[in-house]
Design a protein around this nucleic acid. Sequence first.
DNA 1: CTGGATCTTTCAAACGGTTGACCTCACCCG
DNA 2: CGGGTGAGGTCAACCGTTTGAAAGATCCAG
Lengths: 346, 346
Amino acid sequence: MTARRARRTRRVTLRDVAAAARVDPSAVSRVVNNDPRVSVSEATRQRILEKVAQLGYRPNVGARGLRTSKTWTIGFVLPSLGNPMYEPIVRGVETEAHERGYGIVLGSQIEGRSPGTFASLLQEGRVDGLLVASSSLHDDFIRDIIEHGPGPVVPVNRRVEGVKSCVVVNDEAASAKAVHYLAGLGHELIGGIFGPSEIDTAIRRKKGFLEAVAEASVSSVGVDRPGWTAEHGYTAARQILRDAPEVTAIYASTLLMGLGVLRAAAEEGRAVPSSLSVICLHDNPAVSAYLVPPLTTVRLPTEEMGRRAVQLLIERAEGGPERAIMIEGDGEILERASSGPAPTSR
Amino acid sequence: MTARRARRTRRVTLRDVAAAARVDPSAVSRVVNNDPRVSVSEATRQRILEKVAQLGYRPNVGARGLRTSKTWTIGFVLPSLGNPMYEPIVRGVETEAHERGYGIVLGSQIEGRSPGTFASLLQEGRVDGLLVASSSLHDDFIRDIIEHGPGPVVPVNRRVEGVKSCVVVNDEAASAKAVHYLAGLGHELIGGIFGPSEIDTAIRRKKGFLEAVAEASVSSVGVDRPGWTAEHGYTAARQILRDAPEVTAIYASTLLMGLGVLRAAAEEGRAVPSSLSVICLHDNPAVSAYLVPPLTTVRLPTEEMGRRAVQLLIERAEGGPERAIMIEGDGEILERASSGPAPTSR
DNA sequence: CTGGATCTTTCAAACGGTTGACCTCACCCG
DNA sequence: CGGGTGAGGTCAACCGTTTGAAAGATCCAG
């Protein structure tokens, strides 16, 4: 009769290691954690480390967390993952967290999920703190989470009224840069498509756009939308192209919106870029470079934003002060085929 | 002097509730968990529940997990989130997990992260099981995780040789359906673009494609690529269009690849769909509907795949048997503007 | 009024680590 | 030779829950 494979290798505990190395569990714990307060001879240290490696011991985070009240886990609330601009943020968050020994638990913002859902991540001791990257949650919702969650909460890529901590990029400057770029190409009437008018991120983008328009002495026609998707970009662009067909360029607040603009242009018979230039904020080269035509974008340091957000959150979890971080830089224009000189007026 | 806001509301514990309700902590525990083995008078039950609500008590998952060796958390390994086709899977996984009281911890597959990284989620007792949705990890890599992780691991959207458990959709049938659809439009030479030739998912899609090509008595020219991105689709399509310009339709294995095909077509001067039809597997309407032209796709029940995967994993974590699940259905063709009748030969 | 039987409640031992305090030597110095 | 010192290690309590078992309370029949 063949030996049945063991049902499941039991997890290796501190005690197992201690027994194998013939020392007290506390000694193992101190070696594993490099506790400087208690000395262990080099010989036993080696013996312990050897057994740790040999048995493949890994401390149980739950038990450790119980004692130290640290879970080594960060909660990350974000909207639909379908938006390609979240990819670099997630990568930044994941990488930084991983490097510092933290895990990430996902809190997708799925239709109609209440603030309590996210606050309970904190209440249940599942996470040490919460990152909120959703740019479509209402401020109240986020304040509600903060109110009921016993732990730090840091908004990412947006600010929330009354909440000091946050990590953002300079959306305002980037939007302005896009406008100046277009103005530099000779465009004199520029369409602008913005997000939900009550959300900080949308407000800052719009502000940067409008100020630059004034500064560059060009004209503009702007439209707000209650979301950031391709559909929002599409309907907004249709509206602009119908109401003000003289526009020769359109600025969109997000990559997906830019997608919608391209389609609207095609449907309205506007060739891009000869008759209409299109530019948008936030790049994801895996997508934007393969559109027809490839989309000109303003790249912002979003991966860094993710990393810094994790840093700030950990800092706060360890008792650090509230801070607002704006990552410097006005972005980099990635010029692709969707933008070009304004058509010479006839 | 104004009162300083409390530094942080301490977490409410079982003992706090017990003290408030003047009962033993164990009574609270049993009420909270509806333990049927021990009875509690209706009066005290009410008193306890009242205090629970009043204090906002939520059991600490870490402590509970320590005792019960269940973390109520599932690990989810997936590649870059930039791929819009993962969105529905993630949504399915997240929703189902949430409904069953589980949390999701993310394990992004970031360049050069070793199997150990993922296995340690299990070893550290962070999760009860692991879902692996990456269609670009090598089989060995996944077997390695399974080998070292003390807990169930379920591949999603792919099968792994030697691993029975998995959840997939019928990629083969869906690919075949795409081919028959094109054949039905009169296309007689169809290009096929596939993923990494050693990955099960790519193999099944290719198989379905080739069998349908034979069945429909049309010809084909196929290309394998070592990944699934727009760039892979782009280079593959260029190659096909150059080597076999007579093709009148191209099938791409993923949405992003389809994107690349559209761009290649534009660059080669092939109008879509009048001179070249394009279709791809897996839909994400937030993207595909806004391309120029909107992309015809085959939609598969990927959200359900995510849900079923969670179900199977939980089942396995509770001691259930290994099972392979294929979600029925050959997909639904979402006909958009990128496909049409074959150009009539001159 | 007494002795189960039954219902309600409490006790205490885990789970796997961490950590302040304590113990035991050997060694050194005056 | 006594005592101080420091290195090397162990003890035991604790973190917040769960859960088998025991203890108390209540009730009913004899």
